[in-house]
Design a protein around this nucleic acid. Structure first.
Lengths: 170, 170
DNA sequence: CGATTCTTTGAAAACAGTCAATCTGTGTGG
DNA sequence: CCACACAGATTGACTGTTTTCAAAGAATCG
């Protein structure tokens, strides 16, 4: 297994995926925290996903299709990851059949999580979404800058600040 | 295969899944169109997904966990579906190994689709989301009532109507 | 054809973004 | 270990977006 994977130390703000390049690896976060985001035509960043300890992160679309990615993955903290390339992942799937099931369940869970996020986005206002985020991911909420949370929720940092001051005085 | 699946005719407005019940089936749409939605505490409906011909629909979370669903699935048009229960699906996975791969790819594609929808929700205003919807799903857009599209986009039918009249005069 | 759903419209209110200025904290190099 | 640069957080005034409510007209299922 070790010879099929690579352990890497990643500095704060270092990118492990940049727009325009194919996503060559699935990355497992051993220590630290990452964000995956897109940049729109105005230059605004939008966080699609965070990944902290014991979570996988990759641009699934680009990884399986080999298309150039439209996303960035960047370390928010100094981090350690274990990376695996597609051919090696497929090798492991063949040699450890159980792994297929593990990955199937992982993506099914991520699918359900995303569906709940969509429901949140279309049914709740910004304050409710922020409260839900804190309740659902308390450990992320406490270690992330609010700027990053705002970008994940789809609101401006200024407006998040106003939401927080409203919540504080209640 | 036939003896493991059930073909059903579904009337317009008939439910094939209701909140509080476990989702017992994956349903394959042969003919017609369905929507999956949640109802919040105010009684407002929010469309999570549509499924027309040749698409699968189910509450994935409830189906695999056997938990009571929080969702509804309802026919928007008179429809025909083929349903399969979990035990029979697992039987088919064992007898037709390729089917595992087919389902894996299906859910990976749905995952990517959902991720793009989230990106849309957090990065675009209502007008852009509506235009994107029409471009991405032209055949759905033409057969669905605007009420249902508004509910999918997370806006009110009244505001969608205003968006449409703005687009029309351009 | 009739009942029901869907669509449109308008005015007022609530929600969220923009821009600019200031304040706070903290990572890094010296 | 200190100082400084820089990212992050807050505030306020103003603008823009979306909702709400009510009412009327159009389309469509049965």
């Amino acid at each position: 297994m070790e010879e099929r994977t690579t352990k890497r130390r990643i500095k704060r703000r270092q990118m492990i995926l940049q727009e325009g390049f194919p996503c060559k690896h699935f990355s497992f976060v051993v220590k630290g925290c990452f964000r995956m985001y897109a940049i729109n035509e105005n230059g605004t960043e939008h966080n699609l996903q965070f990944a902290a300890e014991n979570e996988w992160i990759a641009d699934v679309d680009s990884f399986y299709s080999d298309k150039p990615s439209k996303l960035f993955i960047e370390a928010i903290e100094p981090s350690t990851i274990i990376q695996i390339e597609k051919q090696d992942l497929y090798f492991l799937f063949r040699s450890i059949p159980k792994l297929n099931r593990v990955f199937k369940i992982t993506i099914e869970n991520k699918f359900v999580e995303l569906q709940n996020r969509v429901l949140n986005n279309i049914s709740s206002n910004a304050q409710q979404r922020y409260v839900n985020f804190i309740e659902q991911y308390p450990n992320l909420a406490s270690r992330l800058p609010n700027t990053q949370i705002a970008s994940y929720l789809g609101i401006t940092p200024e407006f998040l600040s106003k939401i927080r001051s409203e919540l504080a005085e209640q």
